[in-house]
Structure formats: structure tokens, C-alpha cells
């Protein structure tokens, strides 16, 4: 469980991230990229390489209790920002300060090995999530109960239906108490009977988190689970504020 004595926080100061395009020396590629009109800005760095400025001077202060929704069009830098928060990309300039264990939930099926059994996959997924082997064993019964897979857990997951697979990955992903939870799109899927059960579980999971940052295109999900909104545009923060305000602004903008 979350240690209440520790206050989690996630602070970004003047964070910029740019991706060099190494094979993009030619002008034609430069042009074609510009015409695509994607979110990031193109620039050239000191050694005349083309770089995509994915994030520019992002500053934000996320405190315990904050449920932040990142909204914006495709290519606005939401995923990159989440990856910076997760520590996957270290910013080219600026600093990220975090207090608390960060749990990125970008691909909950990462590391699933088709040839090994359900149990083994649970252990593997748990390790990738940063759980210790004993922590995984502690949660094993909860996972087994939730998946309702029973004896299937003894056989290779390649024999599973996609619904069974979803139950497995979902159960492992939500088996612990996150502190700083980062999600790129809401994790949710499954057959009809499973959805209500899953919804209950994910709600509890999200509530356990001290901080949540969620990038989503679903206004309903954002409104329901978040209390703050950050509107990203071309790698910059366009607006930060209470979720309803930001969603309304965004809707008014995109509605035009």
C-alpha cells in the first residue's frame, strides 16, 4: 500500500526534448516531413542535423492527489511527455523531479512470452513492472482469482483466446498499488461479462495511485477520472487548469 508519510510529486521545469533524424539529411525528406504538418516542429541543431522538437519548454507541477488528463491532437507530444515523465527519455534540457515510484502503463502486454505458461508470464510481467519475486507471489492468488483462468494458467499462453489474454495482462497490470501512475490511453478491454468487473478493479487501482497522468482521446474517461487537464499543442502546453474548463476550451477549439 502507499506509504502515506511520503508525499509524491512530479515537477517538470523547462523540459525540452528533440529527436534527431539521422537518416534525414536530404532536403527532400525535410520537405516531406514539413508538409506532413505533424505536431512537432522541425529545426536544425548546431551540427545541421534535422531534429524534431517534440517538446518545448514544458513546465508543470503535479502534486499528490492530482489526476491529470493530457489532451491534444495526435502528434501534440502527449506520448513523448509521458515517456519523459517515466524516465524513458531523459530531457535534452530542463529537469524532471519526481518523488515516488513511477509506474508507466504504456503497453501492458510487453514481455508476454507466447510459449510459456500463464503462471510464468505473470511472474515475468510482475518483474517488468518492478515487483520483487516475493511481491509477485503475494499477489498471485488475487491475480488467479481475477483472471478466472484456473487450470489454463498451467499451459502456454499461445493457446489462450484474446479475451483470456486480456484478462491475464490486465490482472497483472492492476495487481499493485501504484504511486505515480502514467497511462497512455485507458487500459480497458474484454468480453461483456468481464467489463464491469474490470471497471471496478481499474477504478480501485487508479484510486490507489497518488498521482495519475493519463493521455486519452476520450472526453468521458477524462471527465470521470481526472481533476486537472493539460492541453498540449505542437509540443507545448497550451493550457493547464481544472478538467472541465480545459475540456470545454478544447472542444470549442476543435469544434470550429
Amino acid at each position: 500500500m502507499t506509504d502515506q508519510s511520503t508525499v509524491t510529486e512530479l515537477v517538470l521545469q523547462d523540459v525540452s526534448v528533440s529527436f534527431p533524424i539521422y537518416h534525414g539529411g536530404s532536403r527532400s525528406l525535410k520537405k516531406s516531413l514539413m508538409f506532413r504538418g505533424s505536431g512537432g516542429h522541425l529545426a536544425t541543431d548546431a551540427s545541421h542535423r534535422i531534429t524534431v522538437e517534440a517538446l518545448r519548454n514544458i513546465s508543470m507541477n503535479i502534486q499528490a492527489g492530482d489526476r491529470v488528463a493530457l489532451i491534444g491532437s495526435n502528434g501534440a507530444g502527449k506520448t513523448t511527455l509521458l515517456r519523459v515523465m517515466a524516465g524513458i527519455y531523459e530531457p535534452v534540457s530542463g529537469t524532471v523531479t519526481s518523488r515516488g515510484r513511477i509506474s508507466p502503463m504504456f503497453d501492458i502486454g510487453l514481455g508476454i512470452d507466447q510459449e510459456i505458461s500463464g503462471y510464468e508470464n505473470i511472474r515475468l510481467r510482475g518483474l517488468i513492472l518492478g515487483l520483487r519475486p516475493d511481491e509477485i507471489e503475494e499477489r498471485m492468488q488475487d491475480i488467479i482469482d481475477f483472471t478466472e483462468l484456473g487450470d489454463y494458467l498451467d499451459i502456454p499462453v499461445r493457446t489462450y483466446s484474446s479475451g483470456m489474454m486480456t484478462r491475464l495482462t490486465f490482472a497483472v497490470a492492476t495487481c499493485f498499488a501504484p504511486e505515480i501512475l502514467l497511462m497512455d490511453e485507458w487500459i480497458m478491454a474484454g468480453d461483456a461479462g468481464f467489463i464491469s468487473k474490470a471497471e471496478h478493479r481499474i477504478q480501485r487501482f487508479v484510486e490507489k495511485a497518488s498521482i495519475m497522468v493519463l493521455a486519452s482521446h476520450s472526453q468521458a474517461i477524462c471527465r470521470r477520472f481526472c481533476n486537472r487537464g493539460i492541453w498540449m499543442e505542437t509540443g507545448q502546453v497550451r493550457a493547464i487548469g481544472p478538467i472541465d474548463e480545459i475540456l470545454d476550451q478544447y472542444a470549442a477549439h476543435t469544434g470550429q
Binding site: T6, S98, R101
Partner: peptide
């Protein structure tokens, strides 16, 4: 890691 960070963690380039 699973360990709780009591100290803030600073990441920069």
C-alpha cells in the same frame, strides 16, 4: 525499482 523514493529524484540531461 520497487523501493520507495523518500528523496526527490532529479532527472535532467
Amino acid at each position: 525499482l520497487a523501493t520507495m523514493q523518500k528523496q526527490p529524484v532529479v532527472r535532467g540531461h
